[in-house]
Write a protein that binds this DNA or RNA. Structure first.
Length: 424
DNA sequence: TCTGGGGTCCTAGGACCC
DNA sequence: TCTGGGGTCCTAGGACCC
């Protein structure tokens, strides 16, 4: 019998974070918008009931939102990130080990807890999270991660379960999988679902019954592993060591379209400096840099242009100004001087990341001490006086490309001025 | 006026090597 | 008519995730 795996998943996470500090949002429809207030990325149950779907463009559903008095908030990742830390802290003692899977989901390795009533145990964990953070959650328990995801979904859908579904029993599991839509299975996306449905497979049970060889032929090893997991055979374990990350990106849509190179470079410069900061925070250096910018794919009436260029970085670096130099050269190389294009998004990606201490030395590198000290000084100033207190001049002052965030909540838990005050 | 920002893994196919 | 047989490494692109 494999070790039980539990998955705890926060309900309507971003909305729940907002509600934790703003009770007027409780019981009314709430939507949290993506960066640039672009689309709906989190909805309260009331908003889901009104038919607001994940990824709906806000500007296309504006009328319906207004009609039903839906509260629309800009996303506040500082708050969600800090609340996440608290949620993970709350669950830690309830498992042997945890794997943080995303900002709102954590897998738990339940080895050593098997002799307990795991359903009762999981309810106590939910209660702990609720008391410490006010965030509502659901828990799924099963022999594999894929089944734990499925169990979690079941727990979310059926209020009678009081937030916890235990799918360790195979007979019970089968009954539920017989009516579980195959496209809701973790790892089955649009393309795979379409292929499966063409073969008459529409439920999780149908996929579980597919012979392994057929699964391999239809998809890749990924689908083959998925079939194994649906049959209770673990193809992956709870990973407690954080894997070394391979790439990193800073990309943003602009608040309004950009037509001039100077303006574009202002944005790219900021992304480069931010990318350098991120590298240094993680103690990494990058070996490859890619810059891209493009026009709107949603505007077929305008001339399209998509530019992308990369170069390798030698010596490998985390120096923001070094990244900026390279980014400017690459961006300039692809720039079209006709002024006919309205760019809506740009970004910078870093690859071939290695730990700073494992950086390969090159033959002709000069003394980096001064530059490193400069970066440290900039980091220190920006940490103390706020992001973008010191910036390279090329970043500009007008920042007309800055993204929209018209209704962002305060940083309740991470800025002393924003901490809520309770009157006696 | 107007549609997010990150990530991972896998495979095919080309370049290059002996 | 016939055109070797492997290897490795890298990149682009697809699919999926939250």
């Amino acid at each position: 019998m494999p070790v039980p795996i539990a998955l705890i998943d926060c309900n309507n996470y971003y909305v729940s974070c907002e509600r934790a500090f703003n009770p007027s949002l409780i019981g009314v429809p709430v939507v949290v918008a993506s960066n640039n207030d672009g689309c709906a990325i989190a909805r309260s149950q009331e908003a889901k009931d009104l038919g607001v779907r994940m990824g709906d463009p806000i500007h296309l559903i504006r009328d319906r939102l207004r009609e039903h008095d839906v509260r629309v908030l800009s996303s506040n990742y500082t708050l969600y990130g800090d609340m996440h830390r608290r949620v993970v802290m709350s669950v830690q003692d309830f498992a042997r080990d945890v794997e943080v899977y995303s900002i709102d989901e954590t897998f738990l390795d339940m080895a050593g807890f098997e002799d307990r009533d795991l359903v009762v145990h999981a309810r106590a964990m939910r209660e702990q999270v609720r008391r410490w953070t006010s965030i509502p959650t659901c828990v799924g328990i099963a022999p594999t991660k894929t089944l734990a995801k499925l169990a979690n979904r079941v727990a979310k859908k059926d209020p009678g379960l009081e937030g916890v579904a235990d799918l360790r029993d195979e007979g019970h599991r089968r009954e539920l999988m017989d009516v579980f839509p195959v496209d809701d299975v973790w790892g089955v996306g649009r393309a795979t679902a379409a292929r499966l449905e063409a073969m008459g497979i529409t439920t999780a049970s149908g996929l579980a019954d597919m012979p392994m060889k057929q699964a391999r032929g239809l998809g890749t090893v990924v689908l083959e592993r998925l079939v194994a997991e649906l049959n209770g055979i673990p193809a992956g374990v709870v990973e407690t060591m954080e894997p070394q990350r391979k790439g990193m990106a800073v990309t943003r849509s602009f608040g309004s379209p950009v037509r001039e190179f100077e303006t574009l470079m202002g944005a790219i410069a900021q992304y480069a400096m931010r990318a350098g900061e991120k590298l240094r925070q993680h103690g990494l250096v990058a070996g490859r840099l890619t810059v891209f910018y493009h026009t709107s794919p949603h505007r077929p009436d305008l001339p399209p242009h998509s530019a992308s260029a990369s170069c390798s970085l030698s010596p490998m670096t985390s120096d923001g100004l070094e990244l900026l130099d390279n980014a400017r050269r690459l961006a300039g190389r692809k720039w079209r001087k006709d002024g006919a294009h309205a760019y809506v998004k740009a970004g910078l990606m870093l690859d071939d990341l290695v730990l700073e201490g494992e950086r390969p030395r090159t033959l002709f590198e000069g003394d980096q001490t001064k530059r490193r000290a400069l970066m440290e000084a900039m980091d220190a100033i920006n940490a103390k006086y706020g992001r973008w207190t010191v910036v390279p001049a090329i970043q500009g002052f007008k920042r007309e490309w800055k993204m929209r965030a018209e209704n962002r909540s305060p940083a309740y838990t991470t800025r002393i001025e924003d901490v809520p005050i309770a009157y006696a």
